[in-house]
């Protein structure tokens, strides 16, 4: 059976079945990537701090994610007496569904048959921003519904932080959209066939990295769950599988942000230096992996910011800088284009 046969066969299958199968495959892969990026983080952090890291479960600790998952599953699922039961139970699902939803429109690679992804939407980047912007509700409702002070403080901080940094993030991305002239993610990758946008948009890329770390509530912007002052932040009261859902959502958001950075600034699945022997998917994974490594690197290196400085930095530096970058880009494109 040749490739053409397979494609003919695919055309007879109803579209909803194709989409469902694609979605299931992507979700299974993404969950596996989540599990191992967690192990990756723990190992890298350990090596940076001169510790061995997890090394007991399986060879080199490779079965550690499975052990963690089993632990999460069998822990008791507690609901505090003061909590609002419905919203308390709903919130982790909002977080997780939004985190997973973004993968519906991310193209991972391309072949002659088309895009490797669940859907290739024209307004792809807008759809991702729309889906991830709903994710804030998971955190803020969780903090509110827990009915105790630390989660509430964490949730209020997170809402303020995410709204503030979302502005600068969107602004930093518009520069790329102007250069590419399209909002389709595959279109943006095609537009980078010659020069990756990290070169003309280096300032946009820097702003994007900073805001991305803040948007995903990771160190040094992890004030949302600052252990030393807020116990655990918005998920203080959560335990067992519901905490696990928040945990998965956080890592999936990291992976989403890494994928967007790869697509918008690092040329997506385009091979560098003409090394087209290596398939595009491998390049995509390598670039996104590099971005995730940078996340871990930041976490082990930098101390947490103070909250007022975080807000000042976001509103008084990042937003004006992103706006300036956007205006200069627009002017240059208008003059040259």
């Amino acid at each position: 059976m040749t490739v053409a046969h397979v494609l003919d066969l695919l055309n007879t299958v109803p579209w909803w079945l194709v989409v469902t199968v694609k979605a299931v495959i992507v979700l299974v892969i993404v969950q596996t990537v989540f599990a191992y990026s967690m192990l990756f983080e723990r190992k890298i952090m350990a090596w940076m701090q001169l510790r061995p890291g997890p090394n007991r479960v399986g060879p080199w600790g490779l079965m550690q994610p499975a052990a963690d998952a089993a632990k999460m599953l069998f822990k008791e699922d507690l609901t505090p007496k003061t909590a609002d039961p419905i919203i308390y139970k709903l919130a982790p699902f909002i977080s997780l569904i939004c985190a997973m939803g973004a993968f519906a429109v991310i193209p991972f690679s391309e072949s002659s048959a088309g895009i490797w992804g669940v859907a290739d939407v024209n307004a792809g980047i807008l759809v991702i921003f729309a889906i991830t912007s709903i994710g804030v509700y998971g955190i803020s409702l969780a903090g509110w519904a827990s009915g105790s002070k630390f989660p509430l403080l964490g949730a209020v901080r997170s809402t303020a932080q995410m709204i503030s940094y979302e502005l600068a993030m969107t602004m930093s991305v518009i520069g790329v959209l102007i250069l590419a002239g399209t909002t389709s993610l595959s279109g943006i990758v095609h537009a980078q066939a010659k020069v990756w946008y990290i070169i003309p948009q280096i300032f946009g890329f820097a702003i994007y990295i900073i805001t991305a770390v803040a948007e995903t509530n990771r160190a040094p912007f992890d004030l949302v769950e600052a252990e030393t002052e807020l116990v655990g932040g918005f998920h203080t009261e959560y335990s067992g599988l519901r905490f696990g859902l928040f945990f998965i959502a956080e890592y999936l958001n990291m992976i989403t942000v890494a994928c967007i950075a790869t697509l918008l600034f690092l040329g997506g699945w385009n091979a560098p230096f003409g090394l087209t022997i290596v398939p595009g998917l491998i390049w995509f994974v390598l670039k996104a992996g590099l971005f995730i490594f940078m996340y871990i690197w930041l976490r082990t290196t930098l101390p947490r910011l103070r909250y007022d400085r975080l807000m000042n930095f976001g509103w008084k530096f990042l937003l004006p800088a992103a706006t300036l970058n956007l205006m200069v880009t627009a002017a240059i494109v208008a003059v040259l284009g």
């Binding site: 807008l126 921003f129 729309a130 889906i131 912007s133 709903i134 804030v136 509700y137 803020s140 409702l141 509110w144 209020v156 809402t159 303020a160 995410m162 709204i163 979302e166």
Partner: peptide, 14 residues
């Protein structure tokens, strides 16, 4: 979604 759900309603929750 971006304007109403992502921005305005978040402020309501806040």
């Amino acid at each position: 979604i971006v304007v109403y759900t992502g921005a305005i309603l978040v402020l309501f929750v806040f």
